[in-house]
């Protein structure tokens, strides 16, 4: 197996995730796309860990998983808060940064 097949799979998932983050209006769906991005990174980490024959890749993948769990928790709490305040999780309506 080539190293590149894992890396390009990761790149593909990453870009699909980026598309989702940029294009989705639903807050929950944006969070799902972020999960895609994080998993793409994990594939890279584990592939490089296997390539270099070191456990460090797996260790960092585990850290990413833990951080992702925290991220989902806080992210969903925020989405919930937005929903409670606006009765909608449409991110198009959240434009307080408008200049």
């Amino acid at each position: 197996m080539w190293l590149n097949q894992f890396l390009i799979l990761g790149a593909l998932l990453f870009c699909i995730g980026v598309y989702g983050v940029l294009a989705r209006r639903n807050g929950v769906m944006v969070l799902m796309s972020i999960e895609l991005i994080l998993n793409a990174v994990n594939i890279n980490l584990v592939a490089f860990g296997a390539f270099h024959a070191t456990p460090a890749g797996q260790v960092f993948a585990l850290f990413v998983i833990a951080v992702a769990a925290a991220e989902v928790g806080v992210g969903l709490a925020l989405v919930l808060l937005i929903y409670r305040n606006r009765s909608s999780i449409d991110l198009e309506s959240v434009d307080l940064l408008k200049g």
Binding site: V21, L22, A23, V30, L91, E92, V94, D95, L96, L97, K98, G99
Partner: peptide
């Protein structure tokens, strides 16, 4: 570009 939508900035 300046519509306050975070996703636009992210893009």
């Amino acid at each position: 570009m300046q519509n306050g939508r975070v996703q636009g900035y992210a893009a």
